[in-house]
Simulated assay, not measured.
Amino acid sequence: MAPFPASGHPAAEAYLADGYERVVGMSSRFAAAICARLLRLQTEEGVSGPIAEIGAFEGRFFIALAHALEPGEIALGIDIFEWPNPEVRERFEANCLKYGIAPEQRVTIKGDAGAMAPAELLAHARGERLRFIHVDGEHSRAALSKDLALATACLSEGGLIVLDDMLHPGYPTLMVAVQDYLEANPGVVPLCIIDRETIVGATKFVLCQRDWFERYQAALLEIFKEQIWPLGADFEPHWCLVLSLDTRLAEIT
């Protein structure tokens, strides 16, 4: 098995090692470490600004991302905060405080992202475009299509969109929404796939602007060389990396 990648942020490393699994949620620690490192890569490439998570729930993944921000940057946590009960917002706020994300580092937004206009989201981000958006909202084709449209409209130059629960057996139609989106938005391409850790901690797709693909991919090949599955992913005709804890190829005898 490949080792867990380093996130590149001491605070994120500490949280991932002793805190991540204590916060209720379903996102994998492997994916969180990779996404925290992607935020560091953006900083290294001169990409800065706020980030957002659609579907913050109790804050497990959100806290990891927030720890990977630079001073002065903020994280937006968006959720209807009604499932499984209205107290979920209180738990989100308490987890953020417990694990070191101060109120001035974040903005909590109660509402349906699918009903939000880009100008409204950007206003929450102090008028700045978002450099990283994690989409983990309602798992339906219609909702994902709306979230993708909002993310695209608010994304900064060099920004990344990360889609959760891709290829999950419980949500097989989400891939249809993604394929429709990619065909309608040729300026956006998959940068990499983050393989599942378990059936619960499922696959994520990372999308970037086409003009940034080669630049980011060159860095990923070095940063994640121990986590690269050799065959990659074929999006017909686009090809991208697959990052996995299990990088073996099938033995053919």
Results as ranks from 00 to 15, higher is better:
A218N: 12
I101Q: 01
F61S: 12
E120C: 09
L144I: 06
E70N: 12
A31R: 11
R60D: 03
L121D: 06
E251I: 11
K110W: 08
L221G: 12
N85C: 07
A184M: 11
G46K: 11
L174W: 04
P190A: 10
R91Q: 14
H168L: 09
T253Y: 13
K146C: 08
C96G: 05
A33W: 00
R131A: 04
T247F: 07
L249K: 09
E138V: 11
E236D: 15
S48I: 09
A14C: 06
C208E: 00
K98M: 14
A142W: 01
G159W: 02
P230K: 07
R131L: 03
R89E: 14
F224L: 02
I228S: 02
M26L: 12
A66H: 12
L155G: 00
E87P: 01
A219Q: 14
H124N: 10
P3W: 07
H168A: 13
A75N: 04
V107I: 09
P190Q: 04
A52F: 03
E214S: 11
S27M: 13
E73D: 13
I63W: 05
A123N: 12
L38T: 06
D136W: 06
L121F: 06
H168G: 03
F224C: 04
L69E: 11
A11T: 14
E104G: 05
N85G: 13
L65N: 06
I74G: 06
F205I: 10
V107H: 01
I194T: 04
R129A: 10
L243V: 08
F205D: 06
A94M: 12
L243W: 00
I194Y: 06
R22A: 13
C154P: 00
A153E: 03
A14Q: 09
D234E: 13
I34A: 02
A66Q: 04
P118R: 03
V47S: 10
L41T: 09
S244P: 03
T43E: 12
L243S: 03
E90Y: 06
V23G: 03
D165G: 07
P230N: 04
A142Y: 05
F92M: 07
V206S: 01
